[in-house]
């Protein structure tokens, strides 16, 4: 192996601060404001009202959530919005010990897909579970949305704080 090891030293922080290693930096500024559109725009408005809604496909008859203007299976336009319950069943979940930016969490987040009551089987929304010990969460667990107070809701998915187990 020795013949493959070059005669060199590893870089230190000083090599950068004292300019022995030359480099260039740039801070990107990438900001966007995405048009929510008809379906998701209505979804967000109803979240602000403290309600979950889905849409109905006239072809396969399914109730789809989150709303969209077309059924991706049938490729036909939906024919209306449908009120849904704010209760549902845990389809799958994870106990997540890192935040999105890789910061380690003492109290884990519990992201879950929740099949919403009133929507067709397999139709759920992605959210978080709360007021439950990680070790107690199960697939098939019945849960209910915990909403922010009306005056704090802004028309965003975070208007629901989390879903908690139904006693």
């Amino acid at each position: 192996m020795k013949e493959f090891v070059y005669n060199c030293v590893s870089l230190s922080e000083e090599d950068f601060t004292q300019g022995r290693v030359l480099f260039e930096t740039w801070k990107p500024v990438a900001r966007y404001a995405w048009d929510a559109g008809i379906a998701i725009g209505r979804y967000l408005r109803e979240l602000k009202n403290g309600r979950l809604i889905g849409v109905h496909c006239p072809n396969c008859g399914r109730v789809l959530v989150p709303p969209r203007m077309f059924c991706q299976d049938c490729f036909v336009p939906i024919d209306g919005f449908v009120p849904l319950q704010d209760t549902g069943t845990v389809v799958t979940f994870s106990i997540c010990y890192i935040r999105w930016d890789m910061v380690r969490l003492e109290h884990p987040l519990i992201p879950a897909v929740i099949a919403i009551d009133g929507a067709s089987p397999g139709m759920g929304i992605l959210h978080l579970l709360g007021e439950v010990k990680p070790e107690d969460v199960r697939i098939g667990m019945r849960v209910r949305a915990v909403w922010k107070p009306a005056e704090e809701r802004v028309g965003a998915i975070t208007d629901i704080r989390y879903f908690k187990p139904i006693e």
Binding site: W34, D35, A36, G37, A39, I40, G41, M69
Partner: peptide
């Protein structure tokens, strides 16, 4: 501008 439609729509 197209504030009425999402890119998907």
């Amino acid at each position: 501008i197209t504030p009425d439609l999402s890119y998907k729509e």
